[in-house]
Amino acid sequence: MASLSRADVEHVAHLARLGLTEEELSRLEAQLNHILDQYAILTTLDTEHIPPTAQTIELENILREDVVAESLGVEDALANAPERSGSHFVVPAILGGEGGA
């Protein structure tokens, strides 16, 4: 299987929105490659005709009546927000800036 270069590690960290220090990036490069080496065992197993399993108890189509019921109140939902405006979360601006949206 593939191995990760330093540039790959930086790319994945950006995809994951993790700001990492140089030291963390170096350590992760070594550790992730060591872990990926352990995955190699999977290539020895022929799974071409095996269906994937995403969940184990085979529940499907959980339905309920479409009725209004009590849920978490606005005040409770916003209580932990670092910043709010009325009954809304304040989110960082993502439009405008470089390249628009």
Partner: peptide
């Protein structure tokens, strides 16, 4: 947590999904 987020993000990223995540789900069946 960072290690696992990195591993998971990599395993799900474009080009690696079949080799890692789908493969692991098939092994799960076995």
């Amino acid at each position: 947590a960072k290690r696992r987020i990195m591993l998971g993000t990599y395993a799900l990223s474009a080009g690696y999904y079949d080799a890692y995540y789908l493969k692991a789900q098939k092994v799960r069946t076995l």
